[in-house]
């Protein structure tokens, strides 16, 4: 009976996950261009090409660069927001929903808005030029362009992650704080030695989600920078899209997608181990 009840899910998984997965694994060893009826198997050539490709190497490092910028910003921002929401005497739900709204905004729409805000003749840049003589090339600089994208994504996800932290904060028993107070932990000491360690499950979830997100960035660099300048914002997804759909190298694009999934899996695994070690120190198993 169990198999029968599970069969809709099994069928769904087979059609939409397993078959495409095995098909992708096969395609990665071919030179199929997505539309031609004829193609050949090329062995490991796609993987070898990807290994030596400057754009794949760029995608690899750019992801970690984004991670270095995005993860601390989004964790600090969402924790700060959660602490404010937690201490609000009323309208907590309303504010929480308000901060969550950017998460629902279309990536294309918000990218276009950001493009307008940082354009050469925007009021912001006009002001910076007139007041300080700063003529900033926001999307033309290899340092600023990824930072703009990381900040934009942090704005989008901060409200969502704040909700996860908020639920963590709400679940810390009052008794823990009372005990800490008796032991002399007040103010910042209380936050550092009680709140943050008690929020370990939320930190764990948010960090893993944020790290995983960095391997799937597409819309923002696609609209804002196209991966430039000089590959500074060239992500895995941009590389896969460009190869498979722009250059019609579907076999090669699939190989890059498989490498991407392996790197994602390995990175998340490492982060999990580090976080679990930190959690273990504070009594979390």
């Amino acid at each position: 009976m169990g198999w029968l009840l599970a069969s809709p899910y099994l069928v769904y998984s087979a059609v939409f996950f397993l078959i495409p997965l095995f098909w992708a694994l096969y395609l990665a060893f071919t030179n199929w261009n997505l539309i031609s009826p004829e193609y050949e198997t090329v062995g490991m050539q796609n993987f070898i090409d990807a290994f030596f490709s400057p754009s794949v190497r760029a995608a690899f490092w750019v992801t970690y660069k984004f991670m270095l910028m995005f993860v601390p910003i989004v964790i600090a921002g969402s924790l700060f927001l959660a602490l404010i929401l937690h201490h609000l005497p009323r309208w907590k739900g309303l504010f929480a929903v308000g901060y969550f709204l950017p998460y629902l905004a279309s990536g294309v729409a918000s990218s276009i808005v950001v493009k307008g805000v940082i354009s050469y003749n925007s009021p912001l840049n006009q002001f910076l030029r007139d007041a300080f003589g700063w003529d900033i090339d926001w999307l033309g600089s290899p340092i600023l362009a990824p930072l703009v994208i990381a900040l934009m994504m942090a704005w989008k996800f901060v409200g969502y992650y704040a909700l996860l932290f908020l639920s963590g904060l709400e679940s810390i028993p009052k008794e823990v704080y009372e005990a800490a107070e008796i032991d002399g932990a007040v103010g910042w000491k209380r936050v550092w030695h009680v709140t943050i360690p008690m929020l370990y499950p939320s930190f764990y979830t948010v960090t893993i989600l944020a790290v995983g997100l960095m391997f799937g960035i597409f819309t923002e660099p696609y609209v804002l920078t196209g991966g430039g300048p000089e590959y500074a914002t060239h992500t895995w997804q941009l590389e896969i899209y460009n190869q498979a759909f722009e250059k019609l190298n579907a076999g090669y694009g699939t190989a890059v997608a498989i490498i991407n999934s392996i790197v994602t899996f390995a990175s998340i695994f490492v982060f999990r181990k580090v976080l679990e070690k930190w959690g273990g120190k504070h009594g979390w198993e």
Partner: peptide, 21 residues
């Protein structure tokens, strides 16, 4: 019906869905 039979039924359903698609 034992487990094996249920498994066969599920596999049949899957195959039908794939062929249908």
């Amino acid at each position: 019906m034992n487990k094996r039979k249920w498994f066969k039924l599920a596999a049949l359903l899957m195959a039908a869905a794939v062929i249908g698609t």
